[in-house]
């Protein structure tokens, strides 16, 4: 069967290929589960001078158990977009994989790039399809989607979007946070952006990286499910930039320097 719309989910259905995100609701005993807070993560994105800088911690937890300390939560979807995941890793990784394949399939089959609006709607649809799992309290995913718009007339084409559990997307002008550690840093970002020496939009890459690393360290201080820098294993948070030149990973070497210069230095005695 030929798929003329370039819709990857339709293509999978036509080939009897089921994805995790549209699993049926399993009946639960007792009272229905309340919508749970996203757990075990801090991810944040800020709009800086050249585009978007996005950072995430590396810890994956199950309850009070640290499952993994090298989790990659910033997932590159295509050359200009990154999904920062918070929530159930199984669903989040599946969501990212479906998203990546969907964008590629549209481009390859329709011979044109999917529009930003189309990309946002695709992610909305995946989050909405995942609602049964979210309502059961075991598979919720609340991501941040960051993308660079090459067609914009603005000097800075960086755009940040955040979602609710039902799939509605909202554009954030300056920053977005997600995950259990985000409550500790959201207000700080607001303060920094409004009354700090340099607003986020005027920061260069170095300043934005320092801000993001400091905030991840702050989140790790208060949220047990978020990790900061792990000196024993030499694990740093991940930081990516999205600019008109595409996506760049900040190297561990660069993060080590910035950490030593600007994050570990404190007023504490």
């Amino acid at each position: 069967m030929t798929n003329y719309k370039g819709d990857f989910l339709d293509l999978l259905k036509a080939h009897d290929c089921q994805i995790q995100l549209d699993l049926p609701v399993t009946p639960t005993s007792g009272a229905s589960s309340p919508l749970q807070e996203t757990e075990g993560t801090t991810v944040l994105a800020v709009r800086y001078k050249d585009g978007i800088l996005i950072g995430g911690d590396r810890r994956a937890t199950a309850g009070n158990v640290v499952m993994y300390d090298r989790a990659e939560k910033l997932l590159q979807i295509d050359e200009y977009s990154v999904l920062a995941i918070a929530g159930s890793p199984a669903m989040a990784y599946e969501m990212a994989r479906v998203l990546e394949h969907s964008f590629q399939y549209f481009r390859r089959s329709q011979l044109q790039e999917l529009s930003i609006e189309g990309k946002l709607r695709m992610l909305s649809r995946l989050i909405r399809d995942n609602l049964p799992m979210t309502l059961q309290g075991i598979g919720g995913v609340i991501p941040i989607f960051a993308i660079y718009d090459l067609l914009t007339e603005d000097e800075n084409g960086g755009k940040i979007f955040f979602y609710d559990a039902l799939g509605a997307h909202f554009e954030s002008a300056d920053f977005a946070t997600s995950g259990s550690g985000s409550v500790w840093i959201r207000g700080v970002l607001f303060y920094q952006n409004r009354w700090g020496d340099t607003p986020l939009a005027d920061m260069d890459e170095q300043e934005a990286t320092v801000t993001v690393l400091r905030l991840l360290d702050a989140a790790a201080e208060y949220d047990s499910a978020t990790s900061g820098y792990n000196p024993k294993s030499n694990i740093y948070p991940t930081v990516k930039t999205i600019t008109k030149d595409g996506i760049q990973d900040l190297s561990a070497e660069r993060l080590r320097e910035i950490y030593a210069e600007s994050v570990e230095t404190t007023h504490a005695r």
Binding site: T2, N3, F8, L11, L12, H15, C17, R97, V98, H101, Q104, Y105, R108, S109
Partner: peptide, 16 residues
């Protein structure tokens, strides 16, 4: 027609 067949097959196999 054959381009779409190749693209569809490759996309499904690459995903699965």
């Amino acid at each position: 027609r054959l381009r779409m067949m190749a693209t569809d097959t490759a996309s499904v196999q690459g995903f699965q």
